[in-house]
Amino acid sequence: MPNYNFSPQEMIVVAGARVLENNKVVFAGTGLPMVAITLAQLTHAPGIIPVFEAGAVGPTLNRGLPLSVGCSRTTSKAMYLQGLNAAFELAQRGFCDFGFIGGAEIDMYGNLNSTMIGQFPEAYRRPQLRLPGSGGASDMAASCERTIVIMSHEKRRFKERLSYRTSPGYLDGSPDARQRAGLLGQGPYRVITSRAILGFDEATRRMKLLATMPGETVASVQEHTGFELLVDDNVYPYEPPTQEELRLIREEIDPRGYFIGRKG
């Protein structure tokens, strides 16, 4: 296997930044989504308007990387700051083009678990592992026009059946399932992982492999997925990070390595 001089987290961040479009409103989760949004602002999408759960809308993130969605750095040169209710009202009124979130488990329809690991409902009070919970992720998945998910790609994370459904994707995959459930946004758009770029089939709403990350193949991606992936007719090898993208991440955005692991 080729020796690529970047970490899986750096690859995920670069792919996340590239998928974002200029002049779009992006509701950001904590961690890698914030790094990806900042990278997009510094490269091809300076007009991105970030929205943070604590209420900041439209900051430039030029005062250093925020450590959470409530960090004071999220307010730097913000268009306005009106609190949590105002941020989620913005999404519920249809003004957020993308919700950018993560999770511990995902199924073939893009539903996410960030609540607990164990057999629900028996293990809910005493799970094998208690996770952070929804935060604002469920609201973002329900209301933002499109959702981008970023996460590590492991068989134990890509599950046929989730331990708990925290954030809605396409629910059971049936036609108009989201609309019947009263959800506002279109649903999951992309899943960006350490191994692949994935989308969703328009007819079945099942997860579909679109591109393989450097060093991966269709077979290796499927091997690390706990359900059968659909495979696009035009699967392509994804371009690795450029030297400039890596420089921006390592020297300007996250020089202390709060969220980005180094070579790996």
Score class of each variant (00 low, 15 high):
Arg161Tyr: 11
Phe158Thr: 12
Ile253Val: 13
Thr60Glu: 13
Glu89Asp: 12
Arg146Ala: 00
Val57Ser: 08
Gly55Met: 12
Asp232Leu: 05
Asn113Gly: 01
Pro2Lys: 15
Met151His: 01
Val221Tyr: 02
Thr74Ala: 05
Leu229Tyr: 03
Leu246Tyr: 04
Gln128Ser: 07
Glu239Met: 13
Arg250Ile: 08
Met34Ala: 11
Glu216Leu: 09
Met79Glu: 15
Glu216Asp: 10
Met11Phe: 15
Gly133Leu: 13
Ala78Gly: 03
Leu230Thr: 01
Pro132Phe: 01
Asn5His: 13
Met1Gly: 10
Leu129Trp: 05
Phe52Gln: 10
Asp139Val: 13
Leu67Ser: 11
Ala137Pro: 01
Gly55Trp: 12
Gly110Met: 00
Arg125Cys: 02
Ala137Glu: 05
Arg165Met: 15
Ile12Thr: 09
Phe27Glu: 11
Pro66Phe: 04
Glu244Ala: 10
Lys263His: 11
Glu89Tyr: 04
His44Lys: 11
Tyr236Leu: 10
Ser72Ile: 11
Thr212His: 09
Pro2Cys: 02
Val221Phe: 04
Thr225Lys: 01
Ile49Pro: 07
Gln222Asn: 10
Arg262Ser: 12
Ala203Ser: 14
His224Cys: 06
Ile117Met: 14
Arg178Gly: 04
Ser174Asp: 00
Ile117Val: 15
Glu252Tyr: 05
Pro59Tyr: 02
Gly199Met: 03
Glu160Ala: 10
Glu245Val: 00
Val149Arg: 03
Gly185Ile: 04
Ile48Gly: 11
Leu198Phe: 06
Ala203Val: 15
Val231Thr: 12
Leu84Ser: 15
Thr204Leu: 07
Asn234Leu: 10
Gln41Trp: 06
Asp107Phe: 06
Lys155Asn: 06
Val191Met: 00
Leu230Asp: 09
Pro46Trp: 11
Phe100Gln: 03
Pro2His: 09
Lys155Ser: 10
Val149Leu: 11
Gly182Pro: 04
Leu84Cys: 04
Arg205Trp: 00
Glu105Ala: 05
Asp233Gln: 08
Ala177Ile: 04
Ile197Arg: 13
Gln128Trp: 08
Gly94Pro: 13
Gly261Met: 13
Ser143Ala: 14
Ile12Asn: 01
Arg156Asn: 02
Gln186Lys: 14
Lys77Gln: 15
Leu183His: 14
Gly99Phe: 02
Arg126Tyr: 12
Cys96Met: 11
Leu42Cys: 04
Ala211Arg: 15
Ala78Trp: 05
Leu209Ala: 06
Phe88Asn: 07
Val191Tyr: 00
Ala54Gly: 07
Tyr170Asn: 02
Met11Asn: 14
Met34Phe: 03
Ala87Asn: 08
Arg161Leu: 11
Gly64Trp: 08
Pro2Phe: 08
Leu246His: 02
Ile192Trp: 01
Ser76Leu: 14
Glu239Gly: 07
